[in-house]
Write a protein that binds this DNA or RNA. Sequence first.
DNA 1: CTAGAATCGGAATCATGATTCCGCTTGAAG
DNA 2: CTTCAAGCGGAATCATGATTCCGATTCTAG
Lengths: 182, 182
Amino acid sequence: MIRSDAARNRAKVLEAAEAVLDEHGLSARMDEIAHRAGVGVGTLYRHFATKEALYQAIVTSRVDLLLEQATRLEATAAPETAFFTFFAQIVADAGRKKPLTDALRGAGIDIKAGQTQQQARMRAAIADLLHNAQRAGTVRSDIGLPEVLALLRGASMAAETGDYPAAVLDRSLAVLFDGLKP
Amino acid sequence: MIRSDAARNRAKVLEAAEAVLDEHGLSARMDEIAHRAGVGVGTLYRHFATKEALYQAIVTSRVDLLLEQATRLEATAAPETAFFTFFAQIVADAGRKKPLTDALRGAGIDIKAGQTQQQARMRAAIADLLHNAQRAGTVRSDIGLPEVLALLRGASMAAETGDYPAAVLDRSLAVLFDGLKP
DNA sequence: CTAGAATCGGAATCATGATTCCGCTTGAAG
DNA sequence: CTTCAAGCGGAATCATGATTCCGATTCTAG
């Protein structure tokens, strides 16, 4: 049986880690996470073998959230707008959550087997939305997934650095979107 | 009098540093630079007090090159194209030279007084090219310098990560440029 | 309530890299 | 050709953080 305190601590660690990672990105320190969780480093390591494992756990869950979002959009929203909405969603997320961008970027964390599969699903989701939008005529058809991914990464990274006012980012994204239209 | 061997070594260090930085970006190791320069770390430190000072030296000289380029373009090329040419130039450079992007990004190296002035000049140069292009009607007039800088940074960072084929980057940039047109 | 296993906490240990130190070399002025 | 200050090499030292260890504490089954 899993001890109740252990479960509680695991949750506290996860929460603290998320906060600290959002604040410092990949360079967050383990002892700060432990401290913020009100726990010793030892405890932290009992739950996550390594810093990377901890990141993985958080990033994975966030990407999952995004993937759900994509599925929902594909089912719900008009194909004309779903693509752009999702694109904007990712960029907005990146602005708030550094590690996500770091993960999209692949820097620091070296992506493992399981992770790769998730990445593939993400890529597939974006490809779907893109194709629908192209079929619907809201995205120019002379570009493919690679171009979109490159642009998405650029936009996310710019948003992540975060010293731009929201209005500026919005207008920049609008420019990008105009360029993506036929 | 400056000893001839010292001058020679300084040059070797600079050259090696440039190569290593292009390869590893900000995380380059000092001893690798020293080794590649065929010199001991002590020598390296005799010429540059600190890792940051070494970066500064290289980044500054590169940005200077870019600034010259801007001046030349402004004098020579048509205002319709000068802006886009320079934009592309910076992105291309970023793809080849990590530390440049890092500097534009301001990460790691914390920019010092002298540096800031150079940055200001760069900003001014871009602003000029932008305004000329807007006056000539090749760039939409509902955006300002901040938007352009954000887009430029995003594009540079995407290019820097470097795992995109050149063709993809070219097409992505073309999309961006289309978005920038009126 | 009690024993025993699972968890804790956090000091000690490791690893990685930057920076310092200092005895040895070498260029150049006289 | 000396002299000796400037310059050199690279081992030793520091700093920063991740990871390990182990005695002290809880849980929870019985």
